[in-house]
Simulated scan of single mutants.
Amino acid sequence: MAQSAAPLVQTPPMGWNSWNRYGCRIDEGLIRGVADAMVANGMRDAGYAYVNIDDCWQGERDKDGFIQADPARFPSGIKALADYVHARGLKLGIYSDAGTKTCGGRAGSQGHEFQDATQYARWGVDYLKYDWCNTGAGAAQRNPREAYATMRAALDQAGRPIVFSICEWGDSKPWEWATGIGNLWRTTGDIANCWSCKLGHGSWNSLGVMEILDKQEGLRRYAGPGHWNDPDMLEVGNLSDLNENRSHFAMWTMLAAPLIVGADIAGLKPEITRILTNPRLVAIDQDALGIQGFAWQRGAELEIWARPLSGHRWAIAALNRSSVAQSHVLDWSKEPLGDDLNQTFAKIGEHHFNLIDAWTGKHVGDTQNALPLHVAPRDAQVFILEPKA
């Protein structure tokens, strides 16, 4: 199974998903409009490839058990929609669930995995998000390793390369077992449209951006090309504060996270589009080494994150978690910059680096001098360290 999953998404997948903004309020016109907007606003050319339909697209199964699209919402069918998306240089994603029903109460894939995978391949689907609702409880709950391995086998048999996104919310620690089964796996429950919060939903909670970020601690050893930790979709474009949008995006790129946008693409403000398509931030996320970043220095409110990049480069992000501006002097000579896990060390002093502001592309100094930081509330400054010739 490892060989079938590995060739896909050697860098984290990038795209869009319908759920965060629209929930069940979806139809084929919306999906077509998103594809058109991703071409028009430059997202496709920046690397965003997947247009992913989440829950509530399903209709009934036919007499042979094959799932069909909801005829009212998707009267042209998924095949025609895939053709439309493909014609624009994009890929189509779809959603199902390992239980008897999806989270939205539509038909799940349990007992129909091979039929559903075959149907997706026939339609030209390129990505499957596979959820974990209605899988039983207690001793009667389905085993997640069995459930996801079964769908992995079904996708392999279907014969079409389909990215497999495991969405069981991190409950069974999929990072420990899902390499070779999925291409990405959720590490937490759902993200919420807030900077820092915990929202109750009865039997489960959704978490703010900072809470999701904190839950990535200790997981970086499990991520790499073809198998990614997934801290859930981007709320960039949904958050009300511009600095929060910047920081959210910056930290997901430092995490080597999938960049799956959950906003109204056609209605994006230009400043949000500029965040999402910033070529240097996108390049950090998509770096070929595929090494997830880590918190290098932690203060009470200001955190300095680091991520090794290809070409002996580094990305550095200064994250202000607070609601007031923070100042700090980053003295490169006092804190060795290195990644013990991957045995990668900057050796500043022996080697010198130019500093590039990743947001603007401007040269802002080098590591022979301390870097004064003045970080606005809930903002993130990001720098790329490039070796001097």
Score class of each variant (00 low, 15 high):
148 Y>F: 15
106 R>K: 14
106 R>S: 12
132 W>R: 06
382 V>S: 06
210 M>K: 08
344 T>E: 07
238 N>M: 14
101 K>L: 12
55 D>G: 06
342 N>H: 15
155 L>F: 07
327 S>D: 12
373 L>D: 05
46 A>E: 02
255 L>R: 05
282 V>N: 14
228 W>H: 02
284 I>F: 03
226 G>Y: 05
344 T>Q: 13
236 V>G: 06
331 D>I: 11
184 L>T: 04
75 P>A: 08
210 M>V: 09
103 C>L: 07
344 T>M: 14
364 V>W: 04
345 F>P: 07
58 Q>F: 08
33 G>K: 01
251 M>I: 14
231 P>D: 04
181 I>N: 00
130 Y>F: 15
188 T>Y: 06
358 A>P: 09
288 A>S: 15
42 G>H: 06
221 R>G: 14
275 I>Q: 01
290 G>L: 07
305 W>I: 09
153 A>V: 07
320 N>R: 04
323 S>W: 10
60 E>M: 11
30 L>W: 00
12 P>W: 00
178 A>T: 00
208 G>S: 03
313 R>L: 05
227 H>S: 11
99 G>H: 01
286 Q>Y: 09
206 S>N: 05
24 C>T: 11
47 G>V: 02
138 G>Q: 10
79 K>Y: 10
254 M>K: 02
15 G>V: 01
195 W>E: 00
139 A>E: 15
284 I>S: 02
387 P>I: 02
75 P>K: 05
306 A>N: 07
320 N>S: 05
287 D>A: 13
128 L>N: 08
249 F>E: 00
375 V>C: 03
141 Q>K: 15
140 A>F: 11
92 L>T: 13
65 G>D: 09
92 L>H: 05
